[in-house]
Design a protein around this nucleic acid. Sequence first.
DNA 1: ACGCTACACGACCGATCGGTCGCATACAAT
DNA 2: ATTGTATGCGACCGATCGGTCGTGTAGCGT
Lengths: 206, 206
Amino acid sequence: MASDTTDPAADLPAPRADGRRARGDRTRHDVARQAAMSATVHGLDAITVGALAARTGHSKSGILTVFANREAIQIAAVAEARTLYLRHVVEPSWPAAPGAPRLRALLDNWVAYLRDGVFPGGCFITATSVEYGRREGPVADAVRGLAREWLDLLEAELSAAGSDSPTDDAFRIDAYLRAANTRYQLFGDEVELERARRLSLDVLGA
Amino acid sequence: MASDTTDPAADLPAPRADGRRARGDRTRHDVARQAAMSATVHGLDAITVGALAARTGHSKSGILTVFANREAIQIAAVAEARTLYLRHVVEPSWPAAPGAPRLRALLDNWVAYLRDGVFPGGCFITATSVEYGRREGPVADAVRGLAREWLDLLEAELSAAGSDSPTDDAFRIDAYLRAANTRYQLFGDEVELERARRLSLDVLGA
DNA sequence: ACGCTACACGACCGATCGGTCGCATACAAT
DNA sequence: ATTGTATGCGACCGATCGGTCGTGTAGCGT
């Protein structure tokens, strides 16, 4: 019914908060955030509308009026996790100079992001990229895109740092961080986080 | 261990040996194997009795007469995955001398184990240890035990190889293999497997 | 031959799943 | 004030979940 001749008003797409959507945006954000939190512990594919309703205080049908279906919630959860990752890891590291200084800041902030428990189940990227490794569809695409974004960022900074082989070095550092996260979740020993940071610094120094 | 002549690895439990278990053991093995396969793609916690019934040709209730409940199937799936891992990765490497030669064989066989698609979703240990990282209960214990077993094996061989710090080096190699598996699943590029092998050989020092 | 037991099945159960529908309510633009 | 739209909820739907129960059957020991 929209998009007619006389009314050039904004249609469905605009991600703008025009005031009336304040309430709905709040709901969307709450649900996406809880979904992202739950995903790191029980898996992104294990979220249920009923459980999210209970955790957020909304009703099942209320959630399904602001989200088309469960898949839309999963995709929103990936987007929400991305903003949290940017806020806690990337943005605090950006004031540092590109290259080695920024990479050192990224490592510090990544360790803090895990130690502070931004997500209850650790690194969102690790959890979801393993879960959706061999799957297809919009959710898998979103997960794949987020993982790729992080790898590209890492490789770009390593190039700026003058690495001989940024691809190998990005692989190394990413592998250390993922492994540290997994061991930290499995066995609860924070020394794994420090180990990953130290070994990553070795990659920068060598 | 091997009590039979023709049937390799048909002994998950060991409560009694009354001889008549042939049929039931076959069912148990089929179900556990299918559960392990599915776990690497859709998660160990996503298996359903109905889906396993459809894939194995048995009935739901038939499966639940040889397994106490779904949790018992999950634990049997971990045990089955362990025997597959031993058969494809560990045992073929054991003829090599302890230390560096055996580690080189382990790397070769691990790459082959992934490239041959022993599990449709790649490395079982990586998939399940990430999935159950922050959970508790018998299934999580089994997953944790399997991951620990592999790490201990790796560290022991590195000690035998005369590594200066076997813990760090085991962390490195394990991290490379896990990361290679994840990237191989996500992006489908076999070069990641070779990269992990090459970087792991660098750790060995030659 | 017999009974015992493990295996296997169909029927069925309550609970929960994702999702729809109708209705009430807020809010913005006219 | 009226109209249109986005939000929110309760009731409800068919499907599927893990699991139980009763029955039948295929070996195995005696």
